[in-house]
């Protein structure tokens, strides 16, 4: 990923640290990341901030073996599409699990983690990743 100045990340802190998305007051559909226009209702709807549960299931996943710049020290790592209990999907790394043990349908929940370090600025980026939700596993 390209390296950015602080504001690029700073303006997203609230969303990324607390998993805040949007919900359309008209159709009730949740979104992550935030959107200001509902794709279904458009101007008939109004978006409000929605704190998402951070719990869900793995919808699809991959193991990244050839990482982009900034992620070399983490490889191989799992990137998954998570279907949240709230009813929307998002993309995230899945950690604290052997990549070989990951499967579609696995229950997961958010955890707060370091995402990466930028080389030149020394900026350390944080955000959510997901880990197995032990309480929900069979």
């Amino acid at each position: 990923m390209q390296e950015y100045a602080v504001p690029f990340h700073w303006r997203k802190f609230k969303e990324r640290y607390n998993l805040i998305g949007s919900r359309c007051t008209h159709c009730g559909k949740p979104f992550y990341p935030k959107r200001s226009i509902c794709p279904s209702c458009r101007r008939a709807g109004k978006m409000e901030d929605a704190k998402l549960s951070g719990k869900g299931k793995i919808f699809s996943y991959t193991v990244i073996r050839v990482p982009p710049s900034g992620f070399k020290i983490y490889a191989p790592y799992v990137v998954a599409i998570i279907e949240l209990d709230d009813g929307c999907k998002l993309v995230s790394q899945v950690v604290d699990v052997d990549p070989e043990k990951v499967e579609i349908g696995m229950a997961v929940k958010t955890c707060f983690r370091k995402i990466r370090e930028d080389n030149s600025s020394g900026l350390i980026l944080y955000g959510f990743k997901f880990k197995p939700d032990i309480g929900k596993m069979a």
């Binding site: 990923m1 390209q2 997203k12 990244i64 982009p68 992620f71 990137v79 993309v91 790394q93 990743k129």
Partner: peptide, 9 residues
Amino acid sequence: ETEAYCGST
């Protein structure tokens, strides 16, 4: 802001 941010390729 989402896919690249989390390290996807």
